[in-house]
Amino acid sequence: MKCIELNSEGNFDPWDPSKLKELQKKEFDDRIGQKLLFENKTIKVWEVILFPGERLPFRKISGNYNFTSMTEGLAVSRSANGKISLVRINKGDSMFMKHEGQESIYDFENIGDNILFLHAMEFKPLVEKTDGLKVRFEI
């Protein structure tokens, strides 16, 4: 997977006005994918299928997750800080997104000719128990 920065943070001049309006509404989803395939006390597994021209709207993500691509394609991702990245995805590519509770707001759009098919594994946050130990779930 290769990411190329098309636009730097803080510069909203080249942005499509409809995307800026969407950001200003602040109606963000917190789902990583379109369809939840599996969930237990520690993880959620999501599916994303984007046909050419389809897009996941802006989402507010604060958890860590890993995604793996089942297909190759080309995408663009816009961040609420103004950054725009071009993403070249190869079949089998995997990437870990570390948020550690810090909120990030971004979208993801298929701008290629192929269907993008991704699986994402979202890691639920650690739960701190009263004895100071951190665990992934309550026992």
Results as ranks from 00 to 15, higher is better:
50 L>W: 09
21 K>N: 05
28 F>P: 05
95 M>T: 13
138 E>C: 13
139 I>Y: 15
95 M>V: 12
39 E>M: 08
48 V>N: 09
28 F>A: 00
122 E>M: 03
67 F>C: 08
96 F>S: 14
6 L>N: 02
109 E>P: 09
35 K>V: 00
136 R>D: 14
58 F>T: 01
90 N>K: 13
48 V>D: 09
44 K>V: 11
34 Q>N: 02
100 E>R: 12
76 V>Q: 10
117 F>R: 13
43 I>V: 10
107 D>Y: 11
123 F>S: 09
109 E>W: 11
16 D>E: 06
130 T>V: 12
97 M>K: 14
52 P>M: 00
135 V>E: 13
65 Y>I: 06
52 P>D: 02
71 T>K: 04
105 I>Y: 01
34 Q>W: 12
26 K>D: 01
131 D>Y: 08
55 R>L: 06
94 S>I: 05
38 F>M: 01
120 A>G: 05
58 F>P: 06
43 I>L: 02
18 S>I: 03
44 K>A: 05
108 F>L: 03
71 T>I: 03
127 V>A: 02
63 G>K: 14
56 L>R: 00
46 W>I: 00
63 G>N: 15
51 F>V: 15
74 L>K: 08
22 E>Y: 12
30 D>G: 08
114 N>A: 02
110 N>K: 06
124 K>E: 04
67 F>M: 10
99 H>R: 07
133 L>S: 14
88 R>D: 15
71 T>N: 00
120 A>K: 07
2 K>G: 03
19 K>V: 12
108 F>R: 02
103 E>W: 11
55 R>G: 05
10 G>C: 04
98 K>D: 14
46 W>D: 01
4 I>T: 09
54 E>V: 06
44 K>L: 09
46 W>F: 04
125 P>Y: 03
40 N>M: 02
5 E>F: 01
134 K>E: 03
101 G>Y: 10
20 L>D: 12
108 F>V: 01
87 V>K: 06
57 P>K: 00
63 G>V: 13
78 R>L: 13
81 N>I: 06
50 L>C: 01
85 S>Q: 14
92 G>Y: 01
67 F>H: 10
87 V>H: 11
94 S>V: 07
10 G>K: 01
8 S>N: 13
53 G>L: 07
100 E>L: 12
84 I>Y: 10
83 K>A: 04
48 V>K: 05
17 P>H: 02
11 N>Y: 10
91 K>N: 04
81 N>A: 02
70 M>T: 14
113 D>K: 11
1 M>D: 11
82 G>D: 05
127 V>C: 04
2 K>A: 02
90 N>I: 10
99 H>M: 05
133 L>P: 15
88 R>F: 15
128 E>A: 08
120 A>T: 05
8 S>H: 15
94 S>M: 03
126 L>R: 14
28 F>N: 01
130 T>G: 13
139 I>E: 15
29 D>K: 08
95 M>H: 15
90 N>V: 08
93 D>V: 01
137 F>I: 11
44 K>P: 14
132 G>Y: 10
81 N>K: 06
85 S>P: 15
42 T>K: 11
92 G>P: 07
124 K>P: 07
111 I>H: 03
96 F>T: 14
109 E>Y: 09
100 E>S: 08
83 K>P: 14
80 A>Y: 14
130 T>C: 06
52 P>E: 03
60 K>N: 12
68 T>E: 12
16 D>H: 09
136 R>M: 13
138 E>Q: 09
116 L>V: 04
122 E>G: 00
18 S>E: 07
